[in-house]
Nucleic acid binder design. Sequence first.
DNA 1: ACCTGAACACCGTTCAAGT
DNA 2: ACCTGAACACCGTTCAAGT
Lengths: 213, 213
Amino acid sequence: MSPVAAPRPRLSRDAILDAALAIIDDGGLEACTMRAVAADLGVEAMSLYWHVPGKEALLDGVVQRMLSAAPRYEHSPEWRAELNGIAHALRGILLEHPNAIPLLAGRALGSYAAASKAVETAVGTLEGAGFDRASAIRASRTVYRYVVGFFLVEGSQRPGSRPPAPSTIPVGSPILADVAEAVTGEPSADLFEYGLQTMLDGLEVALRPASPG
Amino acid sequence: MSPVAAPRPRLSRDAILDAALAIIDDGGLEACTMRAVAADLGVEAMSLYWHVPGKEALLDGVVQRMLSAAPRYEHSPEWRAELNGIAHALRGILLEHPNAIPLLAGRALGSYAAASKAVETAVGTLEGAGFDRASAIRASRTVYRYVVGFFLVEGSQRPGSRPPAPSTIPVGSPILADVAEAVTGEPSADLFEYGLQTMLDGLEVALRPASPG
DNA sequence: ACCTGAACACCGTTCAAGT
DNA sequence: ACCTGAACACCGTTCAAGT
């Protein structure tokens, strides 16, 4: 009887989170309003409140969903290669949703839980290499924090962020001139890589305290 | 003639930034509205726009002001002690304004400029120890990012953040149980220290590539 | 030059009401 | 059980107007 109007699939928590993440991906964080998410689902804003307690909870859910993507990397029995792979896989996930990265600030627990599968294998690999349990956990947490922290500092580098504004970088010395050039010139990927390898070098030291010289 | 009513000191950009930071310090970020800042200065909200282009610019200024506090630490000719001191000094500044920390996300350039004095001496010390200019700069930036990134992930840990919510940490394995315990139990300061020392260990490796075994 | 009043176009959220 | 309409108490910001 009724025309073949789309039978509008039931509203659900997951559908809401997906819609929100999609909006953030291509409109930025401030485009993600309750009204916008609802509109994308062909529904009124207040309908969302039946499935989600409020906006903050909705954003928690978005982070969960974002980090629940299975990190893809080739496993290795070698702890350094394994941690390296996990770090890059996590980096890849973040880079798929640059606009959502600021949401990770202060949401460490939830996000850690989401990445727990990777954490578990990381800790296991580290233990196999000679780290005790506590050290393996600290090392994993440290690498995780390094990656997420790096991109939180980086920011989404979206249109909003204005260029280096010469006045804010007072170049009074040759050193600061070089620093300013590095900040604006050196690719972020290189700095990420340098920091990650330095961190892994440090872990190696912890593992083999001092090679007898 | 007029009673000794406070002669209300001229409104100024600095006064506005100080008021905003104070509000953030003891009311959190969401307490810092244009209207609230203005009210604290005995003025109407729209008066602020004469001294500041808009809210985003106001927050930029708050970050500048926060990081312009001179980092206090005892200098050392030894590069590791020097970097260690700078990192802890920066940490100290951040901990004085925990509610403002999220503002640092994506504002790397401005904040870097504010810390430039410390950066300059850090780079100098590293060069003196044998790092070439480019490596010294990368090392400094990496330590800076580590500190700021660490606390961005950490969050302000304010009342808003709910407890670990057992359901979000699926404890399916003994490893994950220990991870969960570490996340909730290990003091943040210890993890910060572990990560920092690991980073510095890594830099040491870069300096003396391989001690001949 | 500096500050104000009133208004605009938004927010997130509540609450009674519909089906 | 699920969705809606109308309303509330806020935002940041514009703009003409005051002094």
